[in-house]
Design a protein around this nucleic acid. Structure first.
Length: 422
RNA sequence: GGAGAAAUGGCAGAGUGGUCGAAUGCGGCAGUCUUGAAAACUGUUGAGGGUCACACCUCCGGGGGUUCGAAUCCCUCUUUCUCCGCCA
């Protein structure tokens, strides 16, 4: 959520930046400013009424104490109209606040200066590419064929137990999953991220805190009976740890890493692009989350990008980094870098990580603050990234590492797996 | 799941209808003393709105009610604790 003060101060810049998302910032922000103005005048009127009525109440109290109950009763009669007035004003104020809130929830984050304008993922800007695309054997297969051949992932079995998009990993496949999780967590811990385990269901307030609600309501599984949501990413529970907190400036940088399964309804997805591991309803991911001082957040973002690069280098997977264009940028992000691994057998790039700076957008919703040097509360910056999402990494490994003698395991994973070939 | 008790500032903990945003202690911050630190002493220290700055307003788990006036009384929800039941 954008800050009112920031909108007041930077309206024109914001409108221009929002154009990169093809969002009509002008009418939205003008609407906000109009309501904000209305809110303040109403609030002022209400405050004055309450002040008057507080004053009278105190007088009544004193009069009763000194035994002048008759005079007290005279004043008492005056309070009736004040009460009525304040009731009306506070109802009006509540209405305005609700309207303002609803409007603010509709406005996405303001893109960072470096974000290119554009509508679709075709307009994303490739900023980096590394790793050799392997020359595959004659009869190279996509990962879903390989998974079947080696009996390491059973998609049909998942369909029987749950439905499409819930695969069952078997034998070496399951072990490789576990190896990847451990390896990623170890790498993140090594880089200074504290490992934590968090709930896989969150309440509605948490959904609002990180911005999944109300924007992506339909993308999350909802447990109606208990009004809880299955997490679409560890970002939600981990970032919400800091909801309603005022952290000490000295604690920065705050760095956490967590492994969780992620649940996404993926309503509307279909076709060849969702085959195999490409798009699932349940998948595993190791996430990194940072809470930063606003001055350092972009440096931190760069650090996270370097960190993910290192992991992909160690895995020896060919990858590229994209800077997302305005149209492809998530609702809450100011700047996002996507990592994609080249899946040779499918001849396409697969997104395996998304690293973003949310600036104060989430912090404002979360009321996540720190004290600046003047002792004033300021919103912190939040960031997160996948480090990494498992299924497509697995797809990349299976496809790129296939040989005539089976699938090789990347060297760094062998100690975690206990085998070097599938 | 059943019965009872409770929820107050970073923490502990007073406060049962009026001047209480709230005693006191701990912690934090600043200072005195000290070569430095500790101890001791002094001061300061919740959040949000509003204002150029004050004034002023709101907040004592959430929501609603009674009252001129609510941390305090009533209703309701949530959470925690104790006992019982069940259980990985």
């Amino acid at each position: 959520m954008l800050q009112l003060q920031a909108i007041r101060d930077h309206k024109d810049e914001f409108i221009k930046a929002l154009q990169k998302r093809n969002v009509d910032g002008e009418s939205l922000l003008n609407g906000v400013l109009f309501l904000d103005e209305k809110r303040r005048t109403t609030q002022t009127q209400l405050d004055a009424t309450l002040a008057e009525s507080n004053k009278l109440s105190k007088e009544i109290g004193m009069l009763f104490k000194s035994g002048k109950s008759q005079e007290a009763n005279v004043i008492k009669e005056k309070t009736g109209s004040l009460k009525e007035e304040s009731k009306q004003l506070s109802e009006a104020l509540n209405g305005i606040n609700e309207e303002l809130q609803t409007l603010l929830f509709q406005i996405p984050n303001v893109p960072h200066n470096s974000v290119p304008s554009g509508n679709t993922d075709d307009d994303n800007e490739e900023i980096f590419r590394e790793g050799d695309i392997p020359k595959l054997i004659e009869k190279a297969q996509p990962h879903w064929e390989l998974a079947k051949k080696h009996d390491i992932i059973d998609f049909e079995l998942g369909v029987k137990v749950t439905g499409a998009g819930f695969p069952v990993y078997k034998g070496k496949g399951a072990r490789l999953q576990r190896a990847l999780i451990s390896y990623f967590l170890d790498k993140n811990a090594e880089a200074g991220y504290t490992e934590i385990q968090v709930p896989h269901l969150v309440n509605e307030t948490s959904g609002f805190g990180t911005g999944q609600l109300p924007d992506k309501e339909g993308q999350m599984y909802h447990v109606g009976e208990d009004d809880l949501y299955l997490i679409p990413t560890a970002e939600v529970p981990v970032t919400n740890l800091f909801r309603d907190e005022i952290v000490n400036e000295k604690e920065f940088p705050i760095c956490y890493t967590a492994y969780t399964p992620c649940f996404r309804r993926e309503a509307g997805s279909y076709g060849a692009h969702v085959r195999g591991l490409n798009r699932l309803h349940q998948f595993d991911k190791v996430e990194i989350v940072r809470v930063e001082h606003p001055q350092n957040s972009y440096e931190a973002l760069d650090g996270m990008v370097e960190h993910v690069k290192n992991i992909l280098r160690e895995l020896k997977l060919p990858y590229r980094i994209l800077r997302l264009c305005g149209g492809d940028l998530g609702f809450t992000a100011a700047l996002t870098y996507d990592f994609e691994v080249f899946s040779t057998a499918q001849d396409r790039w697969l997104e395996i990580s998304s690293v973003s700076n949310f600036e104060t957008y989430q912090a404002n919703r979360l009321k996540l603050r720190y004290k600046d040097e003047n002792g004033k509360s300021q919103f912190a910056h939040t960031l997160n990234g996948s480090s990494l999402a498992l299924p497509r990494v697995l797809a990349g490994i299976l496809e790129n590492y296939q040989t005539a003698d089976g699938i090789q395991i990347p060297e760094v994973l062998v100690p975690y797996c206990g085998f070097d070939t599938i």
